[in-house]
């Protein structure tokens, strides 16, 4: 029985079914981010999940948070923790029409 409970909890965590504080999901679908703008608090985490049947990238060159998540295929995700306040322009390098803004307060 203990094993069953552990498995259920692990599965829930694995699929992100359990909403946990300070975590946000942004999809990449039809060559768009599923959110245009996201307002976060310092320390919040964003999970970028590729939902398109081809590779995507996520990067930011904004001084408030510079990152490059490389490229990854459908079904995979990468996470970023936003650890300082500011406005961050997020793009996909492969598909430059994909843009969103993250405001960290």
């Amino acid at each position: 029985m203990k094993n069953l409970i552990a498995l259920i909890i692990t599965s829930m965590l694995f699929f992100g079914l359990g909403a946990y504080a300070g975590s946000f999901n942004v999809g990449q679908k039809n060559k768009q981010f599923t959110k245009n703008k996201l307002v976060l608090k310092v320390g919040d985490k964003v999970r970028f999940t590729n939902e398109d049947p081809f590779f995507h990238n996520v990067f930011s060159l904004s001084p408030a948070k510079t990152f490059d998540l490389g490229s990854y295929p459908k079904g995979e995700f990468r996470e970023v923790t936003f650890d300082s306040a500011g406005t961050i322009d997020v793009e996909c390098a492969i598909h430059p029409q994909m843009r969103m803004t993250i405001v960290v307060k």
Partner: peptide
């Protein structure tokens, strides 16, 4: 766009 993936793209 000085992102590694874009070298030679």
């Amino acid at each position: 766009r000085p992102v590694k993936l874009m070298k030679g793209a």
